[in-house]
Amino acid sequence: MTPPRDLARRLTAELLGTALLVTVVVGSGIAAQRLSPDDVGLQLLENSTATFLGLTVLILLFGPVSGAHLNPVVSAADWFLGRRTRTGLSGADAAAYTVAQCVGAVAGAELANLMYQVPLTELSTKDRSGGHLLLAEVVATAGLVALVFALARTGRGMLAAPAVGAYIGAAYWFTSSTSFANPAVSLGRVFSDTFAGIAPGSVPGFVLAQLVGGAVAVGLVAWLYPHVGEAAGDVVVPHAPGHETGSTPRSAR
């Protein structure tokens, strides 16, 4: 069983990490919209660059504490792949991670709104519906989850921060949906009617597509890396045993 204090630290890291991630995404989206009001391509460049750099820093900051999942799909995949070897999150911990991530995402969007004096009560009106966008979310999420677990399985987890940041930065451009790839982030972005927002009615489709993408990635990495479950405890970033995360053995996570 995970010690309560250890779990509390990890949930705090997931909440803060996801909150700051959404603050980066929404805040840079607002700034881009104001700085380059007549150039959508430049807005996307500014938004994607800030997200790439911010996500890299956040994984480095929170990874040693919680693994820096910052994404319910990653946490669910970690539980699923590690459940037999008892190396990943338990089902209860994965559920707790998801709650913390979702709460953090909403708080992060509102923090960005406060900094840019955007009304807190406004919900996004930016419609993001269409089969092509849902396909893009499947692709974006599958690539993200596959990357994370491939790095962990091959002992390159410490490269996750720059690799994940680079992948998301690139996926802003090669996917038509601009790569949300994260149910918690999708929820958080509802709470800002700005460049980075998404209308509430578009969220269920995005979340379903992201879950499908996560399932595709799980199947892919299980085929390519038959013993990937043994590395579930090192996702996204290897935890620091006996330090930030306490001395709990991985089999108890």
Rank of each mutant, 00 (worst) to 15 (best):
F191R: 14
F191A: 03
S192N: 12
S192M: 06
D193M: 05
D193W: 02
D193Q: 03
T194G: 11
T194P: 02
T194F: 01
T194I: 09
F195E: 07
A196G: 03
A196W: 03
G197Q: 06
G197W: 01
I198Y: 01
I198M: 08
I198R: 00
I198D: 00
I198C: 09
I198N: 00
I198G: 01
A199G: 13
A199H: 14
A199V: 10
A199E: 12
A199D: 09
P200C: 09
P200I: 10
P200M: 11
G201P: 11
G201T: 09
G201L: 09
G201W: 07
G201H: 11
S202H: 13
S202F: 05
V203F: 05
V203H: 02
V203M: 13
V203P: 05
V203T: 08
V203E: 03
P204I: 04
P204V: 00
G205I: 02
G205S: 06
G205P: 13
G205K: 08
F206K: 00
V207I: 15
L208W: 02
L208G: 05
L208H: 08
L208Q: 03
A209L: 04
A209F: 01
A209K: 03
Q210Y: 09
Q210W: 07
L211K: 03
L211A: 15
L211E: 04
L211D: 00
L211C: 14
V212F: 02
V212T: 12
V212I: 15
V212K: 08
V212P: 09
G213V: 02
G213K: 02
G213A: 05
G213W: 04
G214T: 03
G214I: 04
G214W: 01
A215P: 01
A215K: 00
V216L: 09
V216A: 14
V216W: 00
A217Y: 06
A217K: 08
V218R: 01
V218D: 06
V218K: 06
V218F: 08
G219Y: 03
G219L: 01
G219K: 04
L220T: 14
L220I: 13
L220K: 07
L220V: 15
L220D: 07
A222S: 15
A222L: 12
A222N: 10
A222P: 10
W223A: 15
W223F: 15
L224S: 13
L224K: 15
Y225H: 15
Y225P: 09
Y225G: 06
Y225S: 14
P226V: 12
P226F: 13
P226C: 13
